[in-house]
Each structure stands twice: as C-alpha cells, then as structure tokens.
Amino acid sequence: MSKAVIIGTGSCVPSRSLSNEDLEKMVETSDKWITTRTGIKTRHISGPDEQNYQLASKAAKRALEMAEVDPADIGLIVVATLSPHMIMPSTACFVQAEIGADNAFAYDLNAACAGFTYALDLARHYVQSQPGMKVLVIGSETLSTRVDWQDRNTCVLFGDGAGAAVVTGTEEDRGIIGSKLHSDGNHWDLLYMDSPESQNADLVKEDWQGSLIRMNGGDIFKHAVRNMDEAVKALLDRHRFSIDDLDLLIPHQANIRILRKLQERLKLPDEKVFVNLHKYGNTSAASIPIALDEANRQGMLHKGDLVALCTFGGGLTWGSLLLRW
C-alpha cells in the first residue's frame, strides 16, 4: 500500500511581535511571571492584511515551493482552525482562491489545538486510497481575535500564525506510519470558546460572555501531560518501537511546564524534543506545523528519522502521529 509522505513544509507569522514587556502595559503581569509559568517571551499578533486565510496562504505557498508542486496539482485543501476568517465560507475556500488551487476541494476542520494532527491523519487516508493525490494540510490561527485581553491568565498565552504541509503518496519505506487520536467531550468546559451571540431568543445562553477563549489551566495541565504521554507510548508500542528509537518529538507548544513534564515522563533528552514556544506562544492548530517547518528548515529532520507529533486541545482532543521522515 502507498504511504502518505510530507514533501514540503511552510510557515508564516504576523510581522508584529508582542513581548512580555508590552503585556505589562496592558494587564497586571510581568515578564518574570509569564516566563516562569509559561516559557513564553514573545508572540505574534496579526495586523492589516494578516487575516487567517492570508497567513494560511503564505504558509501554503512556501510549502508548495519547497515541494515543487503547482497549486493546480493540489486535490484537497484542509485548514485546521478554531479562529476562521468567517463562519461561512470556510477558510480553506479563501485559501483555495488566494493560491489558485482551482482543482482542489476545500474545507475546514476544528479540533482545537489538535487540529493539524487530525487533519494530517485525514490526509493520510485520502492519499492511501488515491496515491497520486496531493493534499495541502494547513493549521492556521488568529487567536488574537478570540482572546480576552483583560484576562491575564489567557491573553499572555496565545499568538497568531500558520503552518502547512504538502502530503502525497510514495512507495518508499517512509511516510506516516500511524496515529492514535482521542476525544472526550465530557470535559469540554475545561477549555472552550463560545459561539457568536444567538439571534434566536429561545437559544440565548444566560451566561454568554462573548466568543472568547476560556480555560481552567490547572486541570488542563494534568490532562495534557497524562494524555499526550499515554498517546505517544501507546503508538510506539503498537508499531513495535521503543522511546529510544525516536529521533525527534514535536509536541504542541502550549506551555513550557507541560512540555518539560511530558519530556520527563517520556525520558527524552533535550535534543530530541523540539521547542519554539518562547518565540510564538500557543498558536493552537498552527503550533505543530510551524514547529515542523522550523525543524525541517533548520536541518533537524533527516531522511529515515523516526518523528512523533503529539498534541492536546479543547474538546477535549488529543493524540499522536508517527512518521518516518
């Protein structure tokens, strides 16, 4: 059976950088407080002409350029996002028009911070059934549009950005090996964002406080560490690998304490865990593809490397994906 392989990556972040010192002027916080609790030093915030689909399109073009693939050859565009440009049409349709992928069908996927991993697994199944197909998988967010800038517990965490990957079939002994994806809707209220205010009086929520990100950080920490740890170990075990076989782990860049605790539980050295959280903050569905592109362009990924992605987000949604680079 043909395997799905990533042949190009790309990323894009807004030009404006918002530092911890900048946030000190906006809410009651400090660089020391933010750095100690999150590991974040800066995050990028969108400005004019940096809408979600525009960031996604720039990341997509860079991935296509690396892959040496013409936009007309793309058969499917999937954009993972929880902060779409519009509710309808999908951000993916805007990207299709922006890059000229006239032969693709396009849609969005919302699995919060786990979105890119979910979408990449989806692309794998399309490609396995249609080996010649080329799929553009994008994680793109403008979380600055959905953050409560008066809430110091959340506004310091999130940033905007986009990452993309071109996926196609290969007969080589590499590509996506497998995945282990999970959801648990029972804990939705630990991390959520309400919908726009209802225009149907019978469906108005009494406690509606705006379409903004709300989070219980302490409980999220516990679930994130435990679930990502178990997902990575179970996936490696399923495919008869040990943790020592892993060349690089690219986790969702949420919080440095989560990442270090996960690293401790997996017993991985620093050189096997990719971290760029300090530069971008939590960019949700864009987190892993931005990190993947940076690792790729920095020469940290070599042909034959065993690479694991692991993620956790609202829903709750989480999981891992294993691939041979």
Score class of each variant (00 low, 15 high):
Ser211Cys: 08
Asn282Asp: 03
Val273Phe: 01
Gly185Ser: 07
Ala224Arg: 03
Leu246Gln: 01
Ala234Val: 08
Gly175Gln: 05
Val275Ala: 09
Thr170Trp: 07
Ala286Leu: 03
Arg257Thr: 08
Ala201Arg: 10
Glu171Thr: 15
Asn200Gly: 09
Gly281Ile: 01
Ser179Gln: 04
His239Trp: 09
Tyr280Val: 12
Asn200Val: 14
Asn255Gly: 05
Ser287Val: 05
Ala291Gln: 00
Asp184Asn: 11
Arg265Tyr: 13
Asp305Lys: 01
Gln263Asp: 07
Ser179Asp: 01
Lys261Thr: 15
Val273Lys: 00
Pro251Asn: 02
Leu190Lys: 12
Arg240Gln: 15
Leu266Ala: 10
Ile177Trp: 01
Thr170Ile: 06
Leu262Cys: 10
Arg214Met: 07
Ile220Asp: 03
Met228Asn: 09
Pro196Tyr: 04
His302Gln: 12
Lys205Val: 15
Leu277Ala: 10
Asp247Arg: 01
Val225His: 03
Lys272Asp: 03
Asp245Glu: 02
Ser198Met: 05
Met215His: 10
Asn276His: 05
Ile220Ala: 06
Leu309Pro: 06
Lys303Met: 12
Glu172Asp: 14
Val232Thr: 11
Asp270Tyr: 14
Arg214Thr: 09
Asp207Lys: 14
Gly178Phe: 01
Leu246Pro: 07
Gln298Pro: 12
Gly169Ile: 03
Ile213Asn: 06
Met215Gln: 11
Cys310Asp: 02
Leu301Gly: 02
Thr170His: 07
Ile258Gly: 04
Asp207His: 13
Ser284Trp: 07
Asn282Lys: 07
Ile213Asp: 02
Leu277Lys: 01
Ser198Tyr: 05
Phe274His: 05
Asp202Thr: 14
Asp247Gln: 06
Ser284Glu: 04
Asn255Phe: 00
Ser195Asp: 14
Gly217Arg: 05
Val204Gly: 08
Ile177Lys: 04
Ala286Thr: 05
Ala285Ser: 14
Gly185Ile: 03
Val232Met: 04
Ser242Gln: 04
Ile177Gln: 02
Glu206Asn: 11
Gln263Cys: 11
Gln209Val: 13
Ala285Leu: 10
Ser211Asp: 04
Phe274Ser: 07
Leu259Pro: 09
Lys272Trp: 05
Met215Thr: 12
Leu292Cys: 03
Lys272Arg: 15
Leu301Tyr: 00
Glu172Val: 09
Ser287Pro: 10
Ala231Trp: 01
Asp173Tyr: 05
Gly185Arg: 00
Tyr280Thr: 10
Leu277Met: 08
Met228Ser: 12
Arg297Pro: 08
Gln263Met: 06
Trp208Phe: 13
Leu191Gly: 12
Ile243Arg: 15
Thr283Met: 08
Glu172Tyr: 09
Glu171Ser: 15
Thr283Lys: 02
Ala295Lys: 00
Asp202Val: 08
Gly299Met: 00
Ile243Ser: 14
Lys233Gln: 14
Asp237Val: 11
Thr170Cys: 10
Leu292Thr: 01
Ile243Trp: 03
Pro251Tyr: 01
Arg238Cys: 15
Arg214Gln: 09
Glu294Trp: 03
Leu266Cys: 14
Ile243Gly: 15
His182Phe: 13
Ser179Met: 01
Cys310Ala: 06
Leu203Glu: 13
Ile176Ser: 02
Ser284Ala: 15
Leu191Asp: 04
Ala254Tyr: 03
Gly304Val: 04
Asn296Met: 13
Gln209Leu: 13
Leu190Gln: 13
Asp219Met: 08
Gly217Lys: 09
Met215Lys: 09
His278Asn: 13
Gly178Ile: 00
Asn216Met: 13
Ile290Phe: 02
Ser284Arg: 06
Arg257Glu: 03
Arg238Phe: 14
Asp229Met: 14
